[in-house]
Nucleic acid binder design. Structure first.
Lengths: 240, 240
DNA sequence: ATTATATTGGAACGACGTTCCATTTATGTC
DNA sequence: GACATAAATGGAACGTCGTTCCAATATAAT
């Protein structure tokens, strides 16, 4: 009766771990899924691979998990929850937002699949966690109530955009069994050979691509938005 | 010999459309793919459905197209190319960036699958087009050479982030055969019922979610970044 | 006409997500 | 301890997908 999305352990049994020690559980499945995704990439999570790793059948997994989408969201949420929990400190709201953004960047660097998973969890738990963390800091920044959602939304979408691209780059490099820097290098080479008439800008930044620091650029973008938020507040004060 | 990515029509035949009128071609395949994606959504693009619509076999399609990823990228590029071509005008660089962003928003609203397709085209043609358009305007804004990539990257990632989320929302709603606004309404309801202790912010903005305008929020984010860029330039002028 | 090449249509393969169900294991009752 | 009920398991089977393969056809070249 405790099927899938139902409440787990509604009537909790008195003592110890019931059932045999090696029994299946939602947590064990999620844990195995994360291990699989980390080691084999986005495409590595299959019910067959999962069955083998857990020494069971596909049907047994479906008893604890709704479907693959549910499983991926749960795995994603597990990473996001940890990440959010580890970034609560910070001197100023701006510093906290930077720390939080950096935490997300590192999390996605360590688990690239989270970047693409986040794209498919619209409005669900992982996203809510991020929105909540960002929102509390935006409030602390003194942004007016009416503008809070737009501001949080800007930060969120920017972070999700970088997350998605980083995930895609890593995944792209993995399928060609080269590493990320080699991929960026190859991309820079292609860009530098574009037609100067049609693509003057792309051609000119190709060199910067080769030596740039993903993380620094990411934080520069966060600072750009934070600076824009400061402008919002300045406008408000000017009017009073 | 003109297989897949090879040069087409290297030795062009003298007169008229060679081969029979209804012959297959890369363009006809891409056109049909777009129609399929628009009408059936992300999952609607299948080599079987494509075969049926084009009255041919799967093997014939593979003669003109490398694989599904190549096909999706080409379809995506077709939309992006049109979008970029239709947004070249504008009074100021800032206005042009806004127009461009708006064009992207509308394009993804009309073809939601483009949002997720863009995530999987890292460094390829569609992305280069967007980078080029943004880059030229950022240059015109007077941003220093060293900072141009970071600024373009921020705008690009923000746009891609919104694109991906909008695509996900539309797709999510489609699979449940409800429309987008009903989905956002349902999401707002869930958020408003969250634990006030744990999710005070998410709970408080739930109401705004119900009545907000996606496009307005998107443009507000663009303005936030543009405002941050203005700040960059101000700093630079202060130093000289 | 005959050969060579470009293109086509569809059968077949292996992998996937998911469903189904017979079987096993635990829990509650007398 | 024996029995009934429910929870949980493992694996076979189904339908769909991307992709490959290849015999058949259409076009071009000689």
């Amino acid at each position: 009766m405790s099927r899938c999305g139902m409440i787990k352990n509604a009537r909790n049994t008195p003592r110890g771990p019931q059932r045999r020690e090696e029994s299946l559980s939602r947590d064990r499945i999620i844990e195995a899924s994360i291990a699989l995704l980390d080691s084999k990439g986005e495409g590595g999570l299959t019910f067959r691979a999962l069955s083998e790793r857990l020494a069971t059948g596909a049907g047994a997994i479906y008893w604890h998990v709704e479907n693959k989408s549910d499983l991926l969201t749960a795995a994603c949420d597990s990473i996001i929850a940890r990440t959010m929990a580890s970034c609560v400190v910070g001197a100023t709201p701006e510093a906290t937002i930077r720390t939080l953004a950096l935490g997300m960047f590192d999390a996605i660097d360590a688990h690239p699949w989270v970047g693409s998973a986040l794209t498919h969890t619209a409005g669900q738990l992982p996203m809510v966690r991020i929105v909540e963390c960002l929102g509390q800091q935006v409030r602390a920044l003194g942004v007016a109530d009416k503008e809070q959602w737009a501001v949080v939304s800007a930060l969120l979408h920017y972070i999700l955009g970088v997350a998605g691209q980083n995930a895609a780059n890593t995944q792209f490099a993995r399928t060609r069994s080269i590493d990320r820097s080699n991929f960026l290098d190859a991309m820079a080479t292609v860009w530098s050979q574009l037609d100067p008439k049609e693509y003057p800008f792309a051609r000119s930044v190709a060199g910067q691509l080769r030596v740039h620091d993903d993380c620094a650029d990411f934080l520069a973008g966060i600072d750009l938005i934070l600076s824009g938020i400061r402008g919002l507040r300045a406008d408000r004060i000017d009017l009073t």
